[in-house]
Write a protein that binds this DNA or RNA. Structure first.
Length: 108
DNA sequence: TAGTTGACGACGG
DNA sequence: TCCGTCGCCAACT
């Protein structure tokens, strides 16, 4: 079990199934962080502290790829998701409600 | 040590 | 239903 809150975010993020997506709020709620912004912080640090964290599977509550600007390439996030079969429409996840993976519901 | 920032979310107008 | 504002908490400068 990770000690730092962001390492827990890494674990939850890594638990997101292939081809599915999750939200900052869902992860924050599962880890009882109190703020979804903490998840964004953790994923941001994931680039410098850890590799292999599928941060592209985490989007905001509306299904928008709000984190794409923090990837090496703005289109990288979309391309990674499309490789997993997730359809991106106008920077939003299509069928977002169906693809949404809720950790507090799936892991609990 | 204190102020500002940040990949968000909920609520009110 | 859509837009704007406030709150959240840790890290960085």
């Amino acid at each position: 079990m990770a000690n730092n809150y962001y390492e827990r975010v890494f674990e939850v993020t890594a638990s997101i199934p292939f081809g599915r997506v999750s939200t900052y709020g869902a992860i924050a709620d599962y880890l009882t962080l109190g703020s979804a912004r903490m998840v964004g912080w953790a994923l941001n640090k994931s680039f410098s502290t850890k590799t292999g964290v599928p941060a592209h599977r985490v989007v905001n509550r509306k299904g928008e790829l709000s984190g794409r600007g923090h990837f090496p390439s703005p289109t990288m996030m979309q391309e990674l998701l499309e490789q997993e079969g997730v359809i991106i429409d106008n920077n939003k996840v299509r069928d977002f409600d169906a693809l949404l993976w809720n950790p507090s519901k799936e892991l609990a």
